[in-house]
């Protein structure tokens, strides 16, 4: 029986799609049979992040409306034989599907997969409700910024009132150097505010942009910092105890000196 996990955030642009693609990849690398589902109907992107945009024939709405069988809409990943994508429709809107449809669809997927990861759209309206309805577990993703944490708090409240199992948190795009100089909330700050279980921390990493440019999830390359972080999260989803690494790689002495020299005039101007 598969585990259906929805990745959501409230705020847009914090990394739901990237996280879904990478966790799907990391779980499939570990031998799990995984389906990633793009629930962002009308604004699909999971296909491009995974580099599968040219293979789409049918989509989620086609399956729900009975235009095709589920198997026909599932796209096999290029690299990992155990990974499949169910793309969202691009020319329809969120109201083409309702929560009951999503539950029915995921019940079908459960028969064939170990994990079903659902990429939720931003917001708290219909699309979000559709994405969360079938979930056994929810991952809330945020960045250490005021707006993203506020929206994450809203989502956590909504999940509580929907009596979903308590969600777990992924903090994305953490910049260790900014945390170090006190200009970004750290993990403890965010956890103090949101008060839910931490599932992972993904440091800011330029290789995310590069990998998205190429349509190759960064988790394929375990050497990158973000890739490693997603691998760790996948292991935790499988029940492994993986310690949370410290990200102590802010700028070295020279970098700090340069930062010092560069930041002074700006600081000075700001105060005048």
């Amino acid at each position: 029986m598969a585990n259906v996990i929805t990745i959501t955030s409230g705020k847009g642009g914090v990394g739901k799609t990237t996280a879904t693609a990478n966790l799907g990849t990391a779980l499939a690398q570990r031998g799990c049979k995984v389906a990633v589902v793009d629930a962002d109907i009308g604004l699909r992107n999971l296909d491009v992040v995974m580099g599968l945009e040219n293979r789409i024939v049918y989509d989620l709405v086609d399956v729900v409306e009975g235009q095709c069988r589920l198997r026909q809409a599932l796209i096999k990943d290029k690299r990992l034989p155990e990974l499949y994508l169910l793309p969202a429709a691009q020319t329809r809107d969120k109201n083409a599907v309702d929560p009951k449809d999503m539950i029915k669809l995921c019940d079908q997927l459960r028969e064939d997969f170990d994990f079903v990861l659902i990429d939720s759209p931003a917001g708290i309206e219909q699309g979000y409700k559709n994405a969360v309805a079938p979930a056994d577990q929810v991952i809330v993703i945020t960045t250490p910024e005021v707006s993203a944490v506020r929206d994450a708090d809203r989502i956590i409240g909504l999940l509580e009132s929907a009596e979903k199992r308590s969600p777990r948190l992924v903090i994305n795009r953490l910049k260790p150097s900014m945390v170090k100089r006190g200009d970004m909330m750290d993990t403890a700050d965010v956890l103090e505010i949101l008060a839910i279980e931490l599932l992972g921390i993904v440091p800011e990493d330029d290789s995310i942009v590069v990998s998205t440019n190429r349509g190759e999830p960064v988790a394929l390359n375990g050497k990158t910092r973000a890739g490693m972080a997603f691998q760790n999260i996948a292991r935790r989803l499988l029940g492994d105890e993986v310690p949370f690494p410290e990200f102590n790689d802010g700028p070295g002495l020279l970098g700090r000196l340069w930062g010092f020299v560069r930041s002074r005039p700006i600081d000075f101007k700001a105060r005048n």
């Binding site: 506020r150 708090d153 970004m184 750290d186």
Partner: peptide, 25 residues
Amino acid sequence: VLFGRTKTKSSQVAKERLKLVLVHD
């Protein structure tokens, strides 16, 4: 002012502002 130590760290400002806004949310 010269050494930039009079301002509270912006991360702490963020945290306090968030706490306040979340109470009302």
